[in-house]
């Protein structure tokens, strides 16, 4: 049985020693740092964060997200990226040459894109772009969804965790910061990758997860799935 990380509740005072508090922490009236979330404490080299167990995605500039086209205008698409706010993408922010009016030929309703949050305005509306390296329309594959706060855990340090899954299940995986994940491969492999991701999601608050996932994926391969 793996050990769990330290769990904190909203309003709980967090001991700060030398390292700076970053996300999920606020200063109360007495000047003490408290947790905002019901979640776990994550200590890095320079920062201390409180990571909630679940929660909605809020766009930040530069985030790479997976979005679904929900509406098409004459010159822009409305994209659903699981955030409470409106997200748009203009036709000039795509690599395709087109004139307004026929943009749905390139990207139709219900199709997915891997995009970057280009700008955020004062009222938190955001503009997306797919005009950058690696950004694209996602064709084929399968989309699954996890809570946005679990995404860093699924990616792992420097992408270690997701690479592990890719290797062992022989799939292509794209992870959006907003919690949507695109997986491509044979149906069996997609199911195996999904099971592995769901396992990480369930056990994100425990320590030593990478090692256990290696074991799990090896065993999984041996079972002849």
């Amino acid at each position: 049985m793996a050990e769990t990380k330290q769990i904190v509740f909203p309003g709980e005072v967090i001991e700060i020693s030398e390292i700076k508090p970053r996300n999920g922490v606020y200063k109360n009236k007495e000047g003490k740092y408290c947790s905002q979330y019901f979640g776990t404490i994550q200590k890095g080299d320079d920062y201390i964060d409180v990571v909630p167990f679940t929660g909605h995605y809020f766009p930040r500039r530069g985030d790479k997200v997976i979005g679904k086209v929900i509406e098409i205008g004459p010159s822009m698409w409305t994209i659903d990226i699981n955030s409470p706010y409106l997200n748009l993408m203009h036709m000039n922010d795509t690599p395709w040459k087109m004139s307004s009016g026929d943009i749905k030929k390139y990207l139709g309703i219900g199709e997915y894109i891997y995009a970057k949050v280009m700008t955020l305005n004062e009222i938190k509306e955001s503009w997306l772009t797919i005009k950058d390296v690696g950004l694209r329309k996602l064709e084929g594959g399968h989309i699954i969804s996890v809570p946005a706060p679990k995404v860093p855990r699924i990616i792992g340090k420097g992408g270690s965790m997701v690479n592990l899954i890719k290797e062992h299940t022989d799939t292509r995986i794209v992870i959006g910061q907003n919690g949507l994940i695109w997986i491509e491969g044979t149906p069996e492999n997609i199911l195996r990758a999904t099971a592995a991701i769901k396992k990480i999601e369930r056990e994100a608050h425990t320590t030593g997860l990478t090692d256990r996932m290696t074991e799990y994926l090896k065993g999984d391969a041996k079972n002849g799935n």
Binding site: F9, P10, G11, G24, Y26, N28, C34, Q36, Y37, F38, G39, P52, F53, T54, G55, H56, P147, P149
Partner: peptide, 10 residues
């Protein structure tokens, strides 16, 4: 709290 909504306190 279970929904992951930021709160000052319970």
């Amino acid at each position: 709290a279970a929904a992951g909504i930021p709160m000052r306190d319970m």
